[in-house]
């Protein structure tokens, strides 16, 4: 399996159906040459983490517009830790008030948060830069 393309899971947790942003981001990341998996709606944190591991992604991007960001980001982080998959970058966006953005970033529940009005190019740039810094993937025995 080629590791050259960045793999991203765009996850839509919660019961709401606000998927406009998630879909626009998914398409922008795909157009930027990334491999994008969109989880579809109404996913639990467990389902998102399971899909991320199964799909061997580099990044999880969560789109949250239900106001539940303070429960969902910590829960996804916790599950990633339990699954020993903390190398997966966790980012997100949606209707997240500024002070909650600060709380989530400070406590390490997300690597980056992009709130309404962010150009998609900024998100693409952030992901590319972060994954370059991480360096090339170590060779795997079964590759």
């Amino acid at each position: 399996m080629s590791q050259s393309r960045i793999r991203v899971l765009v996850g839509k947790p919660g019961l709401d159906g606000h998927d406009r942003g998630a879909k626009v981001i998914a398409r922008a990341l795909r157009d930027a040459g990334m491999e994008v998996i969109y989880s579809g709606l109404h996913q639990t944190p467990e389902e998102i983490v399971e899909a991320a591991i199964q799909e061997d992604v580099d990044v999880i991007g969560l789109s949250i517009l239900s106001g539940a960001h303070l429960t969902i980001f910590p829960r996804v982080k916790e599950l990633l830790r339990e699954q020993e998959a903390e190398d997966i970058l966790l980012i997100g966006g949606g209707t997240i008030p500024e002070e909650d953005v600060e709380v989530l970033l400070r406590q390490g529940f997300a690597e980056a948060l992009f709130t309404p009005g962010t150009p998609t190019g900024e998100i693409v740039g952030w992901i590319k830069q972060r994954l370059e810094k991480k360096g090339p993937e170590p060779a795997r025995a079964n590759d």
Partner: peptide, 22 residues
């Protein structure tokens, strides 16, 4: 709220964190 809209009782697992919120 979203659990009512989606047909889940407030004590359902999928309702967690969303009861009475929107």
């Amino acid at each position: 709220d979203m659990p009512t809209i989606m047909g889940y009782d407030s004590d359902h697992l999928r309702a967690y964190g969303e009861v009475g919120r929107v």
